[in-house]
């Protein structure tokens, strides 16, 4: 007997409306998480280069813990573990956003640290010598330059985090992969559906890459 696999285009097309319902969750977890992660990254990244050890040390601990453990373990810990501690269940969406936030925050801290440290010391010296305070010097001279250098690695992190949200199907958030699993359970069209799921991720990440390239080019034009 000969086995012939046929890609069922109709099955692929039929799955699209159901899969699309997952996209808002994927985007919400990704960008909600990244927005908080960016704030965490600035906060801990700047702490990690502080001269005072008691500020630097907690930041380093945070960064090492969340970079050094798998994000899957982190989200399982938040979703299944934390409720034991706080005595009430956690919404899976919130758990997903928190996991992306904490995880990307650790990586973004390193991006922030690297970006700030890459700016020549002469820049701060020039600012200080003009009478600007330390914080004025940082925010109006060092940060804008550092931020520009941070755009490519930040874009990289955003793409990684978007893909990481696919792991959150395990806690039952109705994001893209979860939608795909549910759909396949009824139709048994795994090949077609995961193909469409992959294409949808690619659409999101490619649009982001293009946007970033555009931003980078505009940023570079003025230096």
């Amino acid at each position: 007997m000969e086995f012939q696999f046929q890609f069922d285009w109709q099955a692929a097309i039929d799955s699209i409306p159901f899969l699309l319902k997952g996209i808002p969750y994927t985007l919400l977890i990704s960008f909600g998480g990244l927005a908080i992660g960016f704030a965490l990254g600035i906060f801990f990244g700047l702490l990690s280069i502080n001269k005072k050890w008691f500020l630097r040390w907690p930041a380093t601990a945070y960064i090492e813990i969340f970079r050094g453990t798998p994000i899957l373990v982190q989200v399982l810990f938040i979703f299944y573990g934390l409720p034991d501690l706080i005595g009430s269940p956690i919404d899976p969406l919130a758990a997903g956003i928190a996991a992306i936030a904490l995880n990307s925050g650790a990586y973004i801290s390193e991006v922030v640290r690297g970006g700030v440290q890459s700016i020549d010391k002469g820049q701060s010296e020039a600012g200080l010598s003009l009478g600007l305070s330390r914080s004025q010097t940082f925010w109006s001279i060092v940060w804008p330059q550092a931020f520009r250098r941070m755009i490519p690695p930040l874009g990289n992190q955003a793409i990684v985090s978007i893909k990481d949200t696919s792991l959150f199907s395990v806690i039952g958030v109705g994001e893209l992969v979860r939608q795909g699993q549910v759909y396949i359970a009824n139709t048994f069209t795994a090949f077609e559906v995961y193909f469409v799921v992959a294409i949808m991720y690619l659409c999101i990440t490619l649009s982001l890459s293009m946007l970033l390239r555009f931003v980078e080019r505009r940023g570079l034009a003025s230096t």
Binding site: D120, G122, Q123, G127, S129, L130, G131, I141, P144, T223
Partner: peptide, 19 residues
């Protein structure tokens, strides 16, 4: 803070703000 307002400095590497 007072001194730096009254004292200007010019550096070997210019240190202009490139942005």
């Amino acid at each position: 803070a007072t001194i730096r307002k009254e004292v200007g400095m010019v550096f070997q590497q210019f240190n202009l703000f490139p942005h």
